[in-house]
Amino acid sequence: MTVFLQSLISGILIGGVYALIGIGLTMIFGVMRVINFAHGDIMMVGMYLTYNLFTLCGIDPFASVVICIPVMFLFGGFLQKIFINRVLNALPQNQILLTIGLGLIMSNTIMLIYTSDYKILTTSYSSGSFRIAGISISEPLAISFLITVIITAALYWFLMKTDMGQAIRATAQDREAAQLMGINVKRMSVIAFGLGTALAGTAGALITPTYYIFPQIGSTFTLKAFVITVLGGMGSVIGATLGGVIIGIAESMGAVYISSGWKEVLVYVIFLLVLLFKPSGLMGKSRM
């Protein structure tokens, strides 16, 4: 029973970080239908930003989120305006290759600056944990889960209650119709990409105290982000959150009750099953 609860709890906590990556991608994918293969690399840039803020300025990784969000937002807006915008109507494989190219540029530039060494960011609480009824809970993961919840709630409010949020959602639902309604879809795309980038960067910032950094780390998270996004439903913030937690739990349970080698297969099988039987995702409206 302890084994079950322990893996459930750690699955949920790690799912929180996954969710943040997934939400970032769902914004981009939802609004632009661009398969962004650079998402993990963007997250990696966020990690290095946090690392620098910590080692050079002594800013705590969790506090650095305040800086990370605006900086990464601008970075994302820049990427969208200069590169992504030009391929919005191109074939999907051209979009994929463009983002793969951008990812290569990001990871290799970082490698030239920082070398390919692993960087580990050790805070006073990096390996801290507390126990409730025999189940240990990682302190940094618990904090980052809390921050994820706050950010998700704020984003949800922004998308639901503000004019701009509604414009973004309208663009996500039907680009042409949104344009006909007088929404500046180009601007919405820039904002959506900026938000997606900021969220990926934030996820990077939140995971650094418990994880490690090296320039090629992005690819680990890119595919996971897609699985989460499709699972939850395109453009659905709640869906991506749910997707992240489900994937977290699936991995955790898979490792315990099947084997850690097979846990990722489980994730992809869930992904394909969802695509087959509920292609719109758990929370999405039908889009097929």
């Binding site: 302890t2 084994v3 322990q6 893996s7 750690s10 699955g11 790690i14 970080v17 990682s138 995971i207 418990t210 994880y211 780390i217 680990t220 977290g248 991995e251 955790s252 349970m253 490792a255 315990v256 084997s259 850690s260 080698g261 990722e264």
Partner: peptide, 20 residues
């Protein structure tokens, strides 16, 4: 006897299983 893919952020469940 547990193998894992490198770069995964969470090994807690695998370790819990071993602990048992």
């Amino acid at each position: 006897d547990e193998s894992y893919s490198k770069g995964s952020p969470d090994y807690r469940s695998t370790l819990t299983k071993i602990k048992a």
